Simulated scan of single mutants.
Amino acid sequence: MSQQNSNYVFLMDCADFAEAQVVKSYLTSQGFHPRVRDEQTRGVAPHFGQLLGKLTLEIPEHEYIDASLLMESQEKPRVQIVTESAYDTQGMAKKALWNAILGCTLVPLICNFYSMMLGYRVLRHEVPLSKTSRNRLLLAIVFNSIGFFLWLTFGPQILNLKI
């Protein structure tokens, strides 16, 4: 089957143009026929790179299995870096969520700022984020946004009320 008549399928996403060129060159040297989607556009107008998103490396469908096995054999094992235990950071994420909720209702702004500080500590110490921490931090962001909006919009009016 010739290269022009074959269907191309997704092989991998590359972080940048240089990585895509290195992987494409390696696969070509191994006898494969890869292509980088939107390669001409990126070569002529590299400033469009952010608009086009990630670089996608494609391979003819009949070469997919062999190329993916070759790429997997070259991939280094990924190391998960966690400086604190997951339970500690998940607990911190839970505190961030509760402080965000309290910032919306009882203690404005102070709890929201404390929640943001805890969220930052979780993001700094837990790499990659666990699903539990991610969900708690997303909810904390929602509640912090609501809290800041409510208290910064209506807070001055509430404080000017005389009882």
Results as ranks from 00 to 15, higher is better:
Gly49Trp: 02
Leu51Ala: 09
Glu72Ala: 14
Gly53Pro: 08
Pro46Met: 10
Pro46Trp: 12
Arg37Gly: 04
Thr56Pro: 01
Pro60Gln: 03
Thr56Met: 00
Leu57Lys: 00
Lys76Arg: 15
His62Ala: 07
Glu63Asn: 08
Pro46Leu: 11
His62Lys: 08
Gly53Met: 11
Ile59Asn: 03
Gln40Phe: 15
Pro34Gln: 05
Pro77Cys: 05
Ile65His: 14
Val44Arg: 15
Leu57Glu: 04
Gln40Cys: 09
Pro60Gly: 04
Lys76Met: 11
Gln50Phe: 06
Gln80Ile: 15
Ser68Ile: 10
Thr41Ala: 14
Leu70Gly: 00
Gly49Ala: 15
Thr41Glu: 11
Ala67Glu: 03
Ser68Asp: 08
Leu51Met: 13
Gln74Ile: 05
Asp66Asn: 11
Asp66Trp: 06
Glu63Tyr: 06
Gln50Leu: 10
Ser68Glu: 13
Glu63Ile: 03
Val36Thr: 03
Ser68Pro: 02
Pro34Ala: 00
Leu69Phe: 07
Thr56Ser: 01
Phe48His: 11
Ala45Tyr: 15
Glu39Asn: 06
Pro60Val: 02
Glu39Met: 08
Gln40Ser: 14
Leu51Cys: 08
Leu55Pro: 01
Leu69Thr: 09
Gln74Gly: 03
Val79His: 08
Glu39Cys: 07
Gln40Asn: 13
Lys76His: 10
Thr41Leu: 13
Ser68Phe: 05
Lys54Val: 08
Arg78Gln: 10
Ile59Met: 02
Gln40Ile: 15
Ile59Leu: 00
His62Tyr: 09
Thr41His: 03
Gln40Lys: 15
Glu58Leu: 07
Gln80Gly: 10
Asp66Ser: 14
Arg78Glu: 09
Gly49Met: 05
Gln74Asn: 09
Met71Asp: 04
Arg35Gln: 13
Ser68Tyr: 03
Leu55Arg: 00
Pro77Gly: 04
Arg37Pro: 00
Val79Met: 09
Glu72Gln: 13
Leu51His: 12
Gly49Tyr: 01
Arg37Val: 02
Lys76Cys: 07
Arg42Cys: 04
Gln50Ser: 13
Asp66Gly: 06
Gln74Glu: 15
Leu51Arg: 12
Glu72Asn: 10
Gly43Tyr: 09
Gly49Thr: 13
Arg37Asn: 02
Val36His: 01
Glu61Asn: 08
Gly53Tyr: 05
